[in-house]
Amino acid sequence: MMTAENIFKHYEKDLRRVETEIARIFSSDVVVIPDIGRHLIGGGGKRLRPMYLLMSAALSGYAGDARYVLAGVIEAIHAASLLHDDVVDGAGVRRGKPTSHSIWGAQVVILVGDFLYANSLKAAVSQQNLKTMEAISHAVAKMSEGEILQLQKIADPEITEADYLRIVESKTGALISASCRIGAILGGLPEEKINALTSYGLKSGTVFQIYDDILDFKADEENLGKKLGRDLHEGKITLPLIYLLKSANAQEKEELTAIIDSTSDDDMPDEDGQRDLKKVLALFKKYDVIEKTIDKAKEIVAEAKAELSIFGNCSEKDALVVMADYALSRNK
């Protein structure tokens, strides 16, 4: 039986090639740039975005070296977005380690993020493939839009499920979608199949983010690498909270709105913040909010897998199906 674990094992050698390309993008005579690269890239992570590109390329019958270069580009763009996001969020910890800006300062880290975007695009241009460049450029633009929309919706109890899905599709789905699209482009697939893999990637990436938002209310720091309820503390209204606001009675909704309004820029919730979190978790249990959110994620997983119906049965397709399910089986 194929599992996510043996898929990761299968791609270990390819991902080592991708790591070399990532290091090349971080390369600079300005020593702080590769230093931050080692801190960030060495902080763990499964390289999901490169994996999706490699798997899509395999399904498309492509085995050339451009997949390593472009997978490295995708991961470096992701790294740049993390650098910027952590500064915007004021996050002190990522995957259990101090964030880069807490060590080197926000100004340096923002500029290193800019360097990464520029160097990533330079590496992508070197492949002289306009279609892959279009996919990458589109993803970067969508990621920026998602971040801006999320900032506009901070502590806004009127945020809708459609607003939330637009944010996560842009912030997380867009780059995974681009990864799958690039793999299909490299394999020279017809437009219909390119679009199917693109949509599969968007839906899979969206589920990864929805489940991350669920984990923020049910995982611990050791597994997740951040404190429980961090999103709530920052005023980010994610899908579980949106569902709770829909289900709560008038008094509960008033209390929830007050909790949301008390969002803080402090790195950690104080005693009041912890008490508020306990109230929210109790209401989640009362209204089965986590279960409802997981059900929504499962719907999107089913839609993602349905996109693959255009492809014939093969181990490469099976791997993508397994990875769609993997999004909902993680504890970190």
Score class of each variant (00 low, 15 high):
I300R: 05
A184L: 14
D220F: 07
E12W: 02
K279G: 05
N6F: 09
A304D: 04
K305A: 08
T263H: 15
I290T: 05
R94H: 08
L83I: 07
T257M: 06
E12P: 03
E303S: 07
K296E: 06
L48T: 03
H84G: 02
T238N: 10
L121P: 00
F311R: 04
A184P: 00
Y68D: 14
I22Y: 06
E134A: 13
T172Q: 11
G43I: 14
H39E: 06
I185V: 15
T20M: 12
K171L: 04
E291T: 14
Y164N: 00
M323Q: 01
K253S: 13
K317D: 08
I103Q: 09
K122P: 05
K227N: 07
S60N: 04
I110H: 02
L320T: 00
S137Q: 13
A184T: 12
I36T: 00
A302P: 05
G113A: 09
P157W: 09
I22F: 04
I237F: 14
Q128R: 15
T172R: 05
L224G: 11
I110M: 09
K131R: 15
D318H: 10
I194G: 03
E134C: 05
D65N: 13
R16F: 10
Y11D: 00
C180N: 04
V30P: 02
L111S: 01
L48D: 01
D295I: 10
V289Q: 02
G273W: 11
I182K: 12
A124M: 10
A302V: 07
I33T: 01
D265A: 13
H101V: 03
F217G: 01
A302F: 10
V73D: 01
D288G: 12
A76Q: 00
D114M: 14
Y11K: 07
S100H: 02
Y11N: 09
E316N: 09
I242Y: 03
R95F: 09
I242L: 10
A174D: 04
E169V: 07
G187L: 12
R49P: 00
D272F: 11
I7E: 06
Y211C: 12
I260C: 09
R49L: 08
E12S: 06
L283D: 02
L54E: 01
F115P: 00
R67Q: 07
V88Q: 12
A196V: 02
R47N: 06
K253F: 03
S28V: 02
N6M: 06
R95Y: 12
K227W: 13
N313M: 06
D65G: 11
V108M: 05
M55A: 12
T99F: 01
R275F: 07
F115V: 00
K46M: 06
H138P: 00
G72S: 03
L328H: 09
K153S: 00
T160F: 07
K317M: 14
A324Q: 01
S177M: 05
Y117I: 10
R181N: 11
I294L: 15
I154D: 05
I22R: 08
E254V: 11
E307L: 09
E158A: 03
L281W: 03
R47K: 10
S199C: 13
A258Y: 09
Q152T: 06
A135M: 09
E161K: 11
D86E: 11
A80M: 06
Q152W: 05
D261Q: 15
S204L: 12
E147H: 14
F8H: 03
G43N: 12
W104R: 07
L197A: 07
S27K: 10
T20N: 11
K246C: 04
R16K: 15
L130R: 03
R17L: 10
K236P: 04
D86Y: 13
A304I: 04
